[in-house]
């Protein structure tokens, strides 16, 4: 029994991925009928919260340019498209002036944007 239990623990530890998101961020996600469950691994996570603050992998950054440099640095040694996905979470109330520079920064750095949203309830 002990052996089986420890094997299960090791299995969970190996398979688990520690979330890099800052759990305190308040982000109301936008909705769409086209969202699908994400199957790709992301290299970085970018969040724009309800106050318009930008976070890159859980750490606050000053502006979109910092995001661009961060993504660019992470993608330096990438070979395939599968390694270029960047998760983007943004509060649905944020205006274009806030989110568009961040989207452009990710694109400029060569990232493929995985924009997170919720399923639209009809």
């Amino acid at each position: 029994m002990g052996d089986i239990a420890f094997l299960l623990i090791i299995f969970f530890l190996v398979c688990s991925e520690v979330s890099k998101d800052n759990g305190k961020l308040k982000v109301a996600l936008p909705t769409s009928e086209h969202v699908t469950k994400t199957t790709v691994d992301v290299v970085a996570r970018v969040v724009v919260d309800d106050k318009g603050d930008i976070y890159f992998d859980g750490s606050r950054v000053d502006n979109a340019k910092d995001v661009e440099w961060g993504v660019r640095a992470l993608l330096t040694n990438t070979v395939t498209d599968d390694q270029r996905h960047v998760q983007f979470r943004c509060d649905k109330s944020q205006p274009r002036e806030v989110f568009e520079p961040v989207l452009q920064a990710i694109a400029s750095a060569g990232g493929i944007i995985e924009a997170v949203g919720d399923n639209a309830v009809e």
Binding site: S19, K37, I106, A109, E114
Partner: peptide
């Protein structure tokens, strides 16, 4: 095991993929 099962949050992220030409 019970601790891990209780403390773990399974995140089901749903998203769209947009490859903007850079």
């Amino acid at each position: 095991i019970i601790y891990f099962l209780v403390a773990t949050t399974l995140i089901k992220v749903k998203s769209i993929t947009a490859d903007l030409p850079a």
